[in-house]
Design a protein around this nucleic acid. Sequence first.
DNA 1: CTGAAAGCGCTTACAG
DNA 2: CTGAAAGCGCTTACAG
Lengths: 334, 334
Amino acid sequence: LVTLKDIAEKAGVSVMTVSRVINGHYSKVSKEKTEAIQKIIRESGYVVNSTARSLSSKSSSIIAVLLQGKDGSLQDPYSAAMVNGIIKNVQARGYYLMIHDVDKYEEITSRLRSWNAEGAIFLGTYDKNMKKIQEDNQIPLIFTDSYSSLRQVTNVGIDDYKGGMLAAKCFLEHGHTSCAFVGYTPDTSLLVQQRLEGFRDTLRQAGAELPDEHIIDLNKDPTPGKTISSFSEPVTAIFTTADIAAMQVMTQLKDLGYQIPRDYSIIGFDDLSISSYASPKLTTIHQDIAQKAKIACDILFKHINSPNMPAENICMDVCLCERQSVYDLRKEKE
Amino acid sequence: LVTLKDIAEKAGVSVMTVSRVINGHYSKVSKEKTEAIQKIIRESGYVVNSTARSLSSKSSSIIAVLLQGKDGSLQDPYSAAMVNGIIKNVQARGYYLMIHDVDKYEEITSRLRSWNAEGAIFLGTYDKNMKKIQEDNQIPLIFTDSYSSLRQVTNVGIDDYKGGMLAAKCFLEHGHTSCAFVGYTPDTSLLVQQRLEGFRDTLRQAGAELPDEHIIDLNKDPTPGKTISSFSEPVTAIFTTADIAAMQVMTQLKDLGYQIPRDYSIIGFDDLSISSYASPKLTTIHQDIAQKAKIACDILFKHINSPNMPAENICMDVCLCERQSVYDLRKEKE
DNA sequence: CTGAAAGCGCTTACAG
DNA sequence: CTGAAAGCGCTTACAG
């Protein structure tokens, strides 16, 4: 193990001089010494001990990503895409990424503090504990897709309400008025509620009601396809809060002998790359995940570099990505 | 920030006594003191400084996962599932996970050394630099799906050759003799070559040749569906080295007006959960990713806890998961 | 069972 | 431009 001391001895200078060269404070070291030291560093294969640097400088260069068992696991392609983007952005800035899978609130603080993380990005839902998390951790914290009622929260999200609206509009424009909604925990997830409300409000404005029975919680009902096909009032269109869920429902309905989109039209959410491999290709609400990861990191580092920046709430736009899973009922009637 | 010293002062003991309690060396501390100290720790919200502990104890409790730009990115659902499993296993043992996205060889060593990682798991292909990586990093290193010619490598992989064999057998049993193979970089990836060889050998043994033109590199040809449909010698069955690729090819062929599996039978690889959402449901070679992640971690910690363990090469079994994407040509002939 | 000393490999802050 | 001193918060190793 090569240390600063070893290099200092070899170069016949003090540890401080070597430290200055390593940290790029060239203006403070004579040119000859700088070059001599750099040569020795190169030849010796020296690598800074981040652990020592972190301890003495009180800055770790560690960014934490907090994953949550339920909706923020890497099993979810959305989260995987986010983390993928975050890694690249964090590394590009010379920082390191630690990834934590937490379910209990208490773990968060100890994990963040233990390594003296300089900032953290949260994936998943933390709405209930957010205030506590913020009080206990005085470092920049970026939440994503959060709908906390707290004012002072930095959040990067999307226009979920508009997403629901766009789905409803699309269905209406294609002549659908009897719809269903399928999502994970619509009663408790504020994000899902936004999508639901945008969807329901827009339908209602057009005179189409979305009865409560047509709102299905995927956590409670693993076979929404079956459920929907058994409704007394027949449904023709299904809005789903994730592409994966949409593909699941689609498969269930096809297994029951229905044709998509002939019998049931479906709209997903996210626009994952796999949604164009679905059959029929999935019409879905598009969000730009790579961009979202970039923005989250940009804000995080802005806050790290200048503390006391005000909290900011970013709301990214969404749009409808039309493919083939919505059937045009009006064609029939013509 | 609460330190050991603060707690020691409050409890009227030395720092060492507190340290012993925190590390669970209860046999070395009197019961009364232990309890008094634990109470203070609880009330003060003390969190160990891992950075300081790492520096003085020379063990960091950090495990590194190395991702590789090309085939080991989190964009790939296989890698995401692996990392997901690794996180849980690593955390269950009280360790922390740092994740590194590397493309240049040199980065690996500096990233590992800088944080004094206790072990590392590699996702993706590192065959060329493996020897150097091992020489430069004297910590337990677990490679996955590697086919390095080095003897002393700990690797967790699957029986890729058998995977190819099973695919070929399945096609043959259903009357297919004219096949194609689609994969990423079949010329350079030893893993893909294994799958290809298992596939080709088995076909050959049954008297069915797989001509070189029927081996398609997805990196060079992004539209294998089109290519395959234009072959002069018509192909009826396509083996693909990843479920995602299979779904891609399937979609391309359907877009060209072909019916799957009527016109083309397809077998994928991995058995990701999404493969059952494909339409038709994808017949594929199943590998147990959660188990693979667990085994990789088990071996890693075995090596961490007892150094000088011999390298081991684990080869997990694969099996055919039959769904609906292979058509039975023999039915026709009867 | 308890503690004083030394040290892990760096950086900060100060003196020259 | 250069360096000696002190310290970051812990643990190891030793002495009692």
